[in-house]
């Protein structure tokens, strides 16, 4: 077997330079996805007419089609329909695609999170004179967030990994750089394995962060 561990270690610092772009794609997409997801979930929970039907089609379509197809559609397809979008950068297209795709899943996760909060919590808030938005902000959302965090964390881990799809439209992120190194030295296994290791470490670090956060949020609920 001819596994060049020295080479693998040697390229890791070079690959690490592309971690920021991967994290940038994942974090920005996640933030936008959370905003859209909360909005969709509130429509689902409160069954707002018309918007409810639109939200359902949106969720169904973007959960039911591959992320890669959505990415190609947005980057190559949309500028054909709307010439204004001709100047859209590959990074922006990737962020739009990942945000939309992830928001469709988050909508369902947040809906379940909101519905897991006992109805009596909102009633109690309203009974002491709070409006529904006030009840939502101070009482319902904080409890829903806690219930939704494990599943939301899974989505973020998925997003870190799926951000590698951006290399198909020419974004030089972690995987794209790995591919470049693999082909220039023909040491495919070493290069891709190094890329894989970096993703693994990133998701592990995130898991630790989430664990700490869950413990912090859980304090109120432990005897």
């Amino acid at each position: 077997m001819n596994f060049d561990i020295g080479y693998m270690i040697e390229i890791i610092p070079e690959l690490l330079k592309y971690v920021p772009i991967t994290l940038y794609l994942a974090i920005v997409s996640m933030i936008i996805a959370i905003v859209i997801g909360v909005f969709l979930a509130l429509i689902l929970v409160n069954k707002i007419p018309v918007l409810l039907q639109i939200a359902k089609v949106y969720i169904s379509f973007f959960r039911g089609t591959p992320a890669l197809v959505q990415l190609l559609m947005i980057y190559f397809g949309l500028p054909q329909l709307f010439p204004l979008l001709n100047s859209i950068s590959a990074e922006t297209a990737a962020i739009i695609a990942f945000s939309i795709n992830t928001s469709a899943y988050l909508a369902e996760i947040f809906r379940a999170g909101l519905e897991s909060v006992d109805k009596g919590q909102a009633e109690a808030a309203i009974s002491v004179g709070m409006t529904y938005p006030e009840a939502l902000r101070g009482i319902i959302l904080p409890q829903a967030v806690r219930n939704a965090i494990p599943a939301t964390g899974n989505m973020f881990i998925g997003l870190i990994k799926n951000s590698s799809l951006a290399f198909t439209i020419g974004v030089t992120e972690l995987l794209a750089q790995g591919k470049l190194m693999a082909t220039s030295n023909l040491k495919f296994f070493e290069a891709y394995f190094a890329v894989g290791l970096i993703y693994w470490v990133l998701t592990m670090l995130y898991s630790k962060l989430q664990e700490w956060y869950e413990n912090r949020l859980g304090k109120a609920y432990q005897r």
């Binding site: 919590q121 109690a124 409006t131 806690r146």
Partner: peptide, 22 residues
């Protein structure tokens, strides 16, 4: 309705204390 609600407060059978608050 919001104004009416500020005129009363309620004590519930199942207490309904805000679980995320002390």
């Amino acid at each position: 309705i919001n104004r009416l609600r500020t005129q009363t407060s309620m004590v519930f059978q199942h207490y309904n204390l805000f679980k995320n608050k002390t």
